[in-house]
């Protein structure tokens, strides 16, 4: 690891000022960033830890939705997001217990790993990503693998999820890393169904709109039976071909609909 300065502010305002330094970078739980630093793939001048900012931690219910602080760990979401069971279940299956005890929702959404779990929940729920300076709709936030609408120095302070009538996240784990080989989040709202797919596409998380239309008319696993997903543009690697991932998208969507509660 290259060396860097370390700062641990206790308010969002202080974190924003600390982030103004040249090459400063936010540190959430470090569960992605620290391994990256070990490989010398990043060389920040300063890490600004968000773990001491009380106003960015915890889960609360508000206006038919839940609000999760940007520095809330996966373990806390698993334990406290009971009002949105599919979200709590997703958090309880990220990585392993020690990763869940440190890793945060803000870090996961900022990183936007193409195989990460949270991006599918945010996109399928039509969540709102709040930063220190603005609010971003999930539909505008995800812009391809490891790419988001965040500007340099911008911090995710909070994420708001409207609670669906029924939802489920189904993850086909890549057994060595426990990331999603493919993961599908289905959420049924009064005004329609949203289906978000992670792990599969070379463009990162995406909405499977044909399935959304079919399911909005008939919320049953049979509704997607006749649809097909193309392997073009799907990730092909040693864990599975693009065609295999495309196949999993449909299988997992059906499972998610069947399991949605």
């Amino acid at each position: 690891m290259y060396n860097f300065d370390f700062e641990k502010p206790s308010t969002i305002a202080d974190a924003v000022s600390a982030m103004a330094a040249e090459e400063a970078q936010a540190l959430g739980g470090g569960q992605t960033l620290i391994p990256t630093l070990k490989q010398r793939l990043a060389s920040p001048s300063k890490l600004v830890s968000l773990s001491g900012i009380a106003e960015m931690k915890g889960v609360c219910e508000a206006d038919g939705g839940i609000s999760v602080g940007g520095a809330t760990t996966h373990a806390t979401v698993a334990a406290e997001a009971g009002a949105y069971p599919a979200l709590a279940a997703l958090a309880s299956n990220i990585g392993d217990p020690a990763v869940r005890n440190r890793g945060t929702i803000g870090g996961s959404l900022a990183n936007n790993d193409p195989a990460a779990c949270y991006p599918s929940a945010a996109l399928a729920s039509g969540a709102t990503i709040e930063t220190n300076s603005r609010e971003i709709a999930a539909d505008d936030y995800f812009q391809g693998m490891f790419t988001t609408a965040l500007e340099e120095g911008e911090i995710i302070t909070n994420v708001r999820f409207p609670i669906p009538e029924a939802a489920s996240y189904q993850k086909f784990e890549q057994p060595a890393s426990r990331f999603a080989m493919v993961g599908v989040f289905v959420a049924k709202y009064v005004d329609g169904v949203r289906v978000a797919v992670t792990g599969a596409s070379e463009d990162g998380v995406f909405r499977w709109t044909e399935a959304e239309e079919a399911l909005s008319g008939n919320f049953s696993a049979d509704a997607v039976e006749g649809l097909s997903v193309s392997g073009d543009g799907m990730i092909s690697d040693l864990h599975g071909s693009g065609d295999y991932r495309a196949h999993l998208v449909k299988v997992l969507t059906k499972r998610a609909v069947a399991a949605a509660s």
């Binding site: 641990k8 391994p35 830890s49 020690a98 990763v99 440190r102």
Partner: peptide, 15 residues
Amino acid sequence: GIAVKSCTMLAAEAD
């Protein structure tokens, strides 16, 4: 009181 991977946490974070 919670389990963490000490290889993936900065010493300064445990101050």
